[in-house]
Write a protein that binds this DNA or RNA. Structure first.
Lengths: 182, 182
DNA sequence: TCTTTGTATGCAACTCGTTTCATAGACAAG
DNA sequence: CTTGTCTATGAAACGAGTTGCATACAAAGA
């Protein structure tokens, strides 16, 4: 049950509306925890009832009004407690791995296109991450002396980069294996 | 919705009872797709209704009776169709990454123990995978000329090994970063 | 003027997954 | 002879997550 906490982190980094949170969950924090806008609105309501966040109506020009959410001291305390609460490492769920084992009972060459598609998707994501790293952390625009928050965002991004590189290398291994068999 | 298909693959590799499937989902296929026994029983029932599997009652000595499930031609066809159906790459969900970004709003050193725990868990899993690889694929007991099924199982296992190695390296990066900040 | 796109919020229905509880046969240890 | 462990199956309730639908304001373009 980490969506509440992911939202707390995102709102602490920058208060915002449900709509803005949904967009952040399509990039940035969403690289490691996904959510749709319906889920976000529902959880925001619950968090407000629990006193973790407070809502302020904001009038905008040239746009519909929005509700800006920010974290209360109680919300900060809840996040702090969660950070100290040990959770067990997430078990990975790789649909593609199930498919690869299933290929033993079907024509293995039929999977090659699918694996190539995944390879392309991971290559695209890696490119995207590397561009973000250059822009925010390693390029000329980047802060010379990053603060704790920036350091932590960077190390999480490095995790995403390492993951995509690992997947690319593995998918190439898979392709070579499928071609050998077929 | 891949649990049905993961069960089909597992039953094609070896027919078995719900209980046996649940144990396989604690190792082997479960490294890439997890499920509890309740979920397995419920889905088996549905798959039987759909005609994907058939059930045979088996008397056992010194044990309660069991129901052995095996895949029907219709189930095989369903698997085949799924293998050809493009799915989008799974988005990863790393609770630990959310926690790391959250550490910017709390005492970062409080997270060090938690990250060390995760590091240990991944190290254990890597050891386990490597032992399995040696036993089944690279050791003296391994088949000299593996068939397609064994080749595919091995490449999936290599993926697990690569994943654990990547996580270990990244978690060390995270630890170094946390210690630098604290 | 009408359609499309973007911002903004929300309900309802459904599926997926987890947790808790319950039952029952067989064996082994104390 | 009671307790614990392993095998084996399942119901019920809940929580998490997805999909489809609905509404509304405003700008831009055809």
């Amino acid at each position: 049950m980490a969506l509440e906490h992911a939202i707390l982190v995102s709102l602490l980094e920058q208060p915002g509306s449900g709509y803005e949170l949904a967009r952040r969950f399509d990039r940035s924090i969403g690289y490691f925890w996904t959510a749709t806008h319906q889920q976000i609105y529902r959880v925001l309501r619950r968090m407000e009832n629990d006193g973790w966040i407070e809502v302020r109506a904001v009038q905008q020009q040239a746009r519909p009004d929005k509700k800006e959410h920010s974290v209360t001291p109680a919300g900060r305390a809840a996040l702090s407690a969660w950070l100290r609460d040990p959770v067990q490492p997430d078990s990975v769920r790789h649909e593609i791995a199930v498919k690869i084992r299933g290929a033993a009972f079907d024509d293995p060459s039929a999977l090659i296109t699918e694996v190539e598609r995944h390879h392309q998707a991971h290559a695209d994501r890696l490119t995207h991450y590397l561009a973000g790293e250059l822009r925010d952390f390693t390029g000329p625009e980047a802060p010379a002396a990053p603060d704790a928050g920036e350091e932590l965002q960077h190390v999480v991004l490095r995790g995403g980069i390492a993951y995509e590189r690992m997947m690319l290398a593995w998918l190439e291994d898979v392709l070579a294996t499928l071609r050998r068999i077929a």
